[in-house]
Simulated scan of single mutants.
Amino acid sequence: MAKGPEAFRTISEAAAELNVPQHVLRFWETKFSFIRPMKRAGGRRFYRPQDVAVLRGVRRLLHDEGYTIKGVQRLHKEQGVKRLVAAGLDAAAPAPHAAASEFEPPPPASAAPPPMRPDRRERLLAALADLEAARASLDALLAR
């Protein structure tokens, strides 16, 4: 007999439902403070339905949307757990992104890049000049 939608899930049941290995769920617990399954004697984990909903959102963001662990952590910090649950609700629709950051996937190629701040542009040009000088030095060494 199948469990009801409100029943707790063991780690093997949650992993099967999310299509990830059990060790991935254990790893996520170390990276995401908001993933806290109930633990019984002997450390056996039981996931509540809301835990599985959060995990579904985390899985979608990491595996389908291309977020990094830091990106999901930032999204949780900025928008809360409801945003993570919402990400897992509809697997067919793309998850809306928060404000752009270095931890999120880049925008589609068709989107115009955001304007760059002048101070950042100067730093990038200085770094490029340093790299070009280093390359020239390496080329000279290799030519000997």
Rank of each mutant, 00 (worst) to 15 (best):
M1V: 11
K3I: 11
P5S: 14
A7M: 04
A7Q: 09
F8I: 13
T10I: 11
I11R: 02
A15E: 05
A15Q: 01
A15P: 00
E17S: 09
L18V: 01
N19M: 12
N19G: 13
V20D: 00
V20I: 00
P21K: 00
Q22K: 00
Q22G: 00
H23T: 08
R26N: 03
W28N: 03
W28E: 05
K31W: 01
F34I: 00
K39M: 07
R40F: 11
R40E: 14
G42S: 04
R44Q: 11
R45Y: 12
F46C: 11
F46M: 13
Y47A: 02
P49R: 02
Q50F: 00
Q50T: 08
D51A: 07
A53P: 05
A53I: 04
V54F: 10
V54I: 15
G57A: 00
H63I: 02
H63P: 00
E65V: 05
E65Q: 13
G66R: 09
Y67T: 06
Y67S: 10
Y67V: 12
I69Q: 04
I69R: 03
V72N: 00
V72S: 01
Q73W: 09
H76N: 12
K77G: 03
E78C: 10
Q79I: 08
V85F: 05
G88R: 14
L89V: 12
A91L: 13
A92V: 08
A93K: 01
P94W: 03
A95Y: 05
A99L: 04
A99N: 06
A100E: 03
S101V: 08
F103R: 02
P107E: 09
P107C: 07
S110P: 05
A111F: 10
A112K: 15
P113Y: 12
P113I: 10
M116S: 09
M116C: 12
M116A: 07
R117P: 07
P118K: 13
D119H: 10
R120N: 10
R120C: 08
R121T: 14
R121P: 07
E122S: 02
L125F: 13
A126P: 05
A127F: 08
A127R: 06
A127I: 04
L128K: 08
A129V: 10
A129F: 13
D130G: 03
A136M: 08
D139V: 15
A140R: 15
L141R: 15
L142M: 09
A143K: 11
A143I: 06
